[in-house]
């Protein structure tokens, strides 16, 4: 069908002309984000647009954003990772336990949760890749196991008494303005963008998500690659666990509940296909920001938290609906 558009008679039509539909496909999400922010600025200029509030939003979005970046790798590769919320809790408890003043060097308290998260992720990934167990099931099991492990690690009660340096990891500011959290999120997002867009590795993540059989036949080690994306997701979940523990100045075994779903929501709102192979890095970034902005805006507008849940659910629903539509319907 496309062949005929090459014919001289059809060339007048300029089929690739950058029309409204393509604009919405590429930048629809950005547009929605701008509109939402604009509406909130108009409705509540005093409260919403205050610098302190905006910084609060970014801090709010950061931890979910870091998780969403890892989730994005897994989803593009054709899988899903439900374990990240529990990994946040488990690694957070571990980080806080290591962070008693004078107990261990700060570097260890930073590296340990990340390495631990990566290891858990690698086991998840290997189970999917080599064990051929569906990712939903592997990571569902891991989600339950590591929630339990978090409770065991601290005997059920949160770990307090962390050092000031540990508190500064997430609580600090650059020049008293830019929160460290925002910088971590930005760095993780940029690194993810770089890997997905520029590297052979990134290209292969898309390839195994698009058609794992063709990727394998083309000489790609599909299993090793699958294992690695879960390791990335796990490492970022460990990092998020560290940040959450630092931010809340404690390691709580019940922290991070439902975080996996928020991360998935950010990725989906960001237009990444749940069936794998398709998606841009900036989608989940905006998705995470949008979730935080809407939550904050609804708070400011005094919308009850019950209604907030309904609204957030509907946003996910319509985001995906719009995405399906813009890609040519349900076929």
């Amino acid at each position: 069908m496309t062949e005929r558009t090459m014919k001289p008679t059809a060339s007048k039509r300029r089929p690739r002309a950058y029309g409204a539909d393509r604009f919405f496909q590429d930048f629809g999400l950005v547009l929605i984000f701008v509109v939402v922010v604009g509406v909130l600025v108009v409705l509540s200029p005093g409260a919403f647009a205050r610098p302190a509030n905006l910084i609060g939003i970014i801090k709010q979005a950061s931890i979910n954003g870091v998780l969403a970046m890892g989730m994005m790798f897994v989803i593009i590769s054709g899988g899903i990772d439900l374990s990240v919320g529990s990994i946040v809790a488990f690694t957070g408890v571990v980080a806080a336990s290591l962070a008693h003043p004078g107990a261990y060097p700060l570097a260890l308290t930073i590296i340990a949760p990340i390495v631990l998260g990566a290891a858990i992720g690698a086991v998840n990934g290997a189970s999917v890749a080599y064990g051929r167990i569906p990712s939903f099931i592997v990571t569902l099991a891991a989600m339950i196991v590591f929630r339990g492990a978090a409770l065991i690690a601290c005997d059920g009660s949160p770990v307090f008494g962390v050092s000031g340096a540990f508190e500064d990891i997430a609580g600090g500011f650059v020049r008293d303005v830019v929160p460290y959290l925002a910088i971590y999120f930005a760095l993780v997002a940029l690194a993810s963008a770089f890997i997905l867009k520029m590297t052979v590795y990134g290209r292969r993540v898309y390839a195994i998500g698009g058609n794992p059989v063709a990727a394998g036949v083309s000489g790609i080690n599909v299993r090793a690659l699958q294992t690695s994306v879960y390791a990335i997701s796990g490492a970022l979940a460990g990092f998020a666990g560290l940040l959450l523990a630092s931010r809340t100045v404690s390691g709580s075994p019940t922290a991070g509940e439902g975080y996996e779903l928020n991360a998935i929501a950010a990725v989906i709102i960001g237009g990444v296909s749940m069936s794998g192979g398709v998606g841009h890095w900036y989608g989940p970034v905006i998705g995470a920001l949008l979730i935080a902005v809407i939550g904050n805006g609804l708070d400011i507008l005094n919308v009850s938290s019950y209604y907030q849940l309904v609204i957030q659910g509907l946003i996910i629903y319509f985001a995906v609906l719009a995405d399906v539509r813009s890609k040519g319907g349900l076929r």
Partner: peptide
Amino acid sequence: TTGLNLLGTVEENISLAAIGRVA
């Protein structure tokens, strides 16, 4: 089923097996 990544572009498919050579 085994030759193409149908979600990918023409270019991505062409360079899939020999991507090491353009990297």
